[in-house]
Computed example of a mutant assay.
Amino acid sequence: MVEQLIHKYADAGINFLEAAILFVVGWYVVKMILRILSKMMKRSQIDAIIENFVISILNIGLKIIVIITVIAKLGVPTTSLVAVLTTAGAAIALGLQDSLKGIASGITILFSKPFVKGDIIEIDGYVGTVQEIQLLYTIVMTFDNKMVVIPNNDLVSSSFVNYSHEDVRRVTMTVELHPDNDIPQFKAALMQVIQQHPYALKEPAPVIKIGEYKERSVSMQIWVWAENDHFYDLNDDLWVAIRKIFKEQNIKIPAQQIDVRIQNSDIK
Rank of each mutant, 00 (worst) to 15 (best):
I68W: 14
I68G: 05
T69R: 04
T69G: 09
T69W: 09
T69H: 03
V70Y: 12
V70R: 00
V70H: 03
I71P: 06
I71G: 02
I71F: 10
I71C: 05
A72T: 04
A72L: 06
K73G: 15
K73T: 14
L74N: 03
L74V: 01
L74T: 00
V76D: 02
V76E: 10
V76G: 01
V76M: 02
V76P: 00
V76N: 02
P77F: 04
T78C: 09
T79Y: 04
T79Q: 07
S80T: 05
S80E: 07
S80V: 12
L81A: 11
L81D: 01
L81P: 01
V82C: 01
V82P: 05
V82Q: 07
A83V: 04
A83S: 13
V84G: 08
V84Y: 14
V84I: 12
V84A: 09
L85Q: 00
L85S: 04
L85G: 03
L85I: 03
T86N: 03
T86V: 12
T87P: 00
T87K: 05
T87S: 14
T87V: 07
G89C: 11
G89F: 06
G89Y: 11
G89N: 05
A90M: 15
A91W: 10
A91P: 04
A91H: 00
A91N: 05
I92N: 02
I92T: 14
I92M: 08
I92E: 01
A93P: 15
L94E: 00
L94A: 15
G95T: 07
G95Q: 08
L96W: 02
L96I: 04
L96D: 08
Q97E: 09
Q97Y: 15
Q97W: 15
D98N: 11
D98P: 05
S99E: 13
S99M: 11
L100N: 03
L100M: 13
L100C: 00
L100D: 11
L100G: 06
L100Y: 09
K101A: 02
K101M: 04
K101G: 06
K101E: 08
G102D: 10
G102Y: 09
G102Q: 08
G102S: 04
I103E: 03
I103H: 01
I103Q: 04
